[in-house]
């Protein structure tokens, strides 16, 4: 009886479930941590862990939105360019146009959000592949950033603005990490507990069945891309603040890091499957790879190669995991 109870507590415990559901990526993570901490004693220190969390925060913001987009069965390539555009414009509005900070921030976020909205609108209304339309949006957003700034980076020294990305909560926890935790909580709630989240899975899993079940496909698609745009704009804001400047050249390749985090976390590129916790683990793995390699002193050129290999291996492992459990089922059936 008590044994059973214990078991059911374990089964129903969301934290346990979270690890169980992401077993592949968690194993990779633990393995990496062990290897790196043998190689360097600077890795498992409080300051380093906090610094890793701060480093992954930007990618996590973007990857949260990307998770929804990919579960929906689409992809958003415009995120990196939105980071650059929103950041450059926000800083520019403050420094060049002299707008009040709050207004500049709101405008910056709004423009990024609008870009996502447009992608979502076009994808859902005209049935254009998201790959194409978001690639177009990537060029447009990136172009806007360069045209506005003339290719120059704009320095900003305003204390309030700088504090957004570099400040601390209780003098220990970096603010970007705080945002990250809040956003993870919000998105996990959205995806798991609301009608909206259920609809995202339904559309990605079987679009026709979702349509016939009364799921408002167009609305959900637009909201998802809009959220992705908003999160990218927010990432742009935090990034600028941390760099004390708005630079049109930042953000390139961010879309790939975000997609990598999703895929590492078990989100299916064909849609319908994925979870926020997986993406967060994915982002952590990517963050720890560069952090660990930096600490060990591997050159950044080699880091690229190693990063690629680890991502490929992790995904292969995940695919094999599915096959293994399938084999196991067969075996059990045979014996039974």
């Amino acid at each position: 009886m008590s044994e059973n109870k214990k078991k059911s507590v374990l089964v129903n415990n969301p934290v346990v479930n979270m690890f169980r559901g992401n077993i592949g990526i968690v194993m990779v993570l633990i393995l990496m941590c062990i290897i790196i901490s043998f190689a360097t004693d600077k890795f498992l220190t409080g300051t380093n862990i906090i610094s890793v969390l701060r480093q992954i925060s930007i990618n996590t913001f973007i990857a949260l939105g990307m998770t929804l987009v990919i579960i929906l069965g689409h992809i958003d390539l415009s995120v990196g360019a939105i980071v650059a555009m929103s950041g450059t414009l926000t800083v520019g509005f403050i420094v060049n146009q002299g707008l009040p900070i709050w207004l500049a921030i709101v405008l910056g976020l709004l423009i990024g959000t609008a870009t996502g909205f447009i992608s979502g609108f076009v994808v859902s209304t005209f049935k254009v592949p998201a790959f194409i339309i978001t690639m177009a949006m990537m060029n447009i957003a990136s172009g806007i950033a360069y045209v506005y700034s003339g290719g120059q980076s704009t320095r900003i020294t305003n204390e309030f603005f700088i504090n957004i990305g570099t400040g601390y909560l209780f003098k220990v926890i970096p603010l970007p990490v705080v945002y990250m935790v809040i956003l993870i909580a919000i998105f996990a709630f959205l995806l798991n507990k609301t009608k909206f989240g259920t609809y995202v899975y339904a559309i990605g899993g079987n679009r026709e069945a979702a349509r016939l079940s009364g799921v408002p496909i167009k609305k959900v698609e637009i909201i998802v891309f809009t959220l992705s745009g908003f999160l990218s704009a927010f990432a742009g804001l935090v990034l600028c603040s941390r760099m004390y400047s708005g630079q049109p050249s930042v953000g390139s390749g961010y879309e790939l890091d975000a997609i990598a985090a999703c895929v590492l976390g078990g989100t299916s590129m064909s849609g319908g499957k994925g979870r926020i916790s997986g993406t967060v683990f994915g982002a952590i793995v990517i963050g720890i790879i560069s952090n660990g390699l930096n600490l060990i002193g591997v050159s950044s050129y080699w880091q690229l190669i190693i990063k690629g290999l680890i991502i490929a291996c992790a995904v292969l492992l995940d695919v094999q995991k599915g096959k293994l459990s399938g084999l196991k089922k067969k075996f059990v059936k045979k014996n039974a």
Partner: peptide, 21 residues
């Protein structure tokens, strides 16, 4: 299979998809 169910999701998910409200 094509129009009725999201096959990769749970029985509970499918059964309540149209009546979430």
């Amino acid at each position: 299979k094509k129009q009725g169910l999201v096959l990769g999701n749970s029985v509970a998910f499918n059964m309540t998809l149209s009546s979430l409200r």
